[in-house]
């Protein structure tokens, strides 16, 4: 952190920068506030107050939870549960695999290292949605359609996460690892007991990559999770779009519930962001 030595602070008071930070946050939030307030509006009022622009856009004339009640009795709670379960397993398993691979590529010197790294790079250049079709066929042959396993797998192999962690592990001083070896620690021990504990911010960043990929995935579940019992939140949200009418109330209420989860996870994960500052003295 370098803010302590910020001479600009004298010219620009901290309060000014706080206002800028707030403005950025509110800009990001404003569209979501509309979603939130619309989810609490009575049906038919969602587009009220748009033109001319009135406060009614963000403030419902009367608050109703009918959309949430309707949502509770639909298939959405199940879809949200499926998404949560899938994303949890994906992040844990994907993070474990990516960390191992990132470490393997960063720390060990061996012939063929460049080739293995090239495989990782090429893999994340391949647009998943463009190759989903042949893969779906393969998954179906393996009987993985309509299984949690089939939904989780594509999120686990995340080349970006491997790349990110490799970048981070490259910054760990080699002497640290060599010294631990001399200390008699085995490689897996070095990895889990020395390297991982000092890599929390990088692990959180990698988890974020894996999380967002899986949380947003739409085409893959559409192809492979055809049983409504296996449906995921983004697909369930899209199904509120009828042929002639869109149930905006249900869709927005579902969206609100879908965002609450990442908010909670982030609030929790942020603790590790500051903690890393304490450990950063060990590496340079």
């Amino acid at each position: 952190m370098f803010e302590t030595y910020d001479p600009m602070r004298r010219k620009w008071p901290r309060r000014f920068w706080t206002v800028v930070a707030m403005a950025a946050g509110i800009y990001a939030l404003l569209p979501l506030l509309w979603v939130l307030s619309s989810s609490l509006k009575p049906a038919g009022e969602i587009f009220a107050g748009l033109s001319p622009l009135t406060p009614q856009v963000l403030i419902p004339s009367s608050v109703t939870i009918e959309s949430y009640v309707a949502l509770a009795t639909s298939s959405f709670p199940l879809a949200l549960f499926n998404s949560l379960f899938i994303v949890t397993v994906t992040v844990i398993a994907g993070l474990a695999m990516s960390a191992l691979a990132g470490y393997g590529l960063a720390v060990f010197r061996f012939r063929g290292r460049a080739i293995l790294f090239a495989i990782v790079v090429i893999s994340f250049l391949i647009p998943f949605d463009a190759v989903a079709l042949p893969l779906a066929e393969l998954f179906r042959d393996w009987g993985l359609d309509n299984t949690y396993f089939g939904l989780i797998l594509p999120g686990i192999g995340n080349g970006f996460a491997v790349f990110l962690l490799r970048q981070f592990f490259l910054g760990i001083p080699r002497e640290l690892i060599e010294a631990a070896r001399v200390d008699g620690m085995n490689e897996f021990g070095i990895f889990t007991r020395i390297v991982l504990p000092m890599s929390k911010p990088a692990l959180i960043s990698a988890a974020q990559l894996i999380f967002v990929f899986q949380w947003q995935s739409f085409l893959w579940p559409l192809l492979i999770a055809t049983d409504p019992r296996m449906t995921v939140a983004p697909v369930a949200l899209a199904s509120f779009v009828g042929q002639f009418e869109v149930d905006f109330g249900l869709m927005f209420a579902g969206c609100v519930l879908t965002i609450i989860v990442p908010i909670g996870v982030l609030l929790y994960a942020q603790r590790y962001f500051t903690e890393s500052v304490a450990t950063s003295g060990t590496k340079g």
Binding site: A132, L133, A136, E137
Partner: peptide, 9 residues
């Protein structure tokens, strides 16, 4: 997409 992928589901 699903018919091209011979989806039996």
């Amino acid at each position: 997409a699903r018919m091209s992928a011979r989806d039996s589901g």
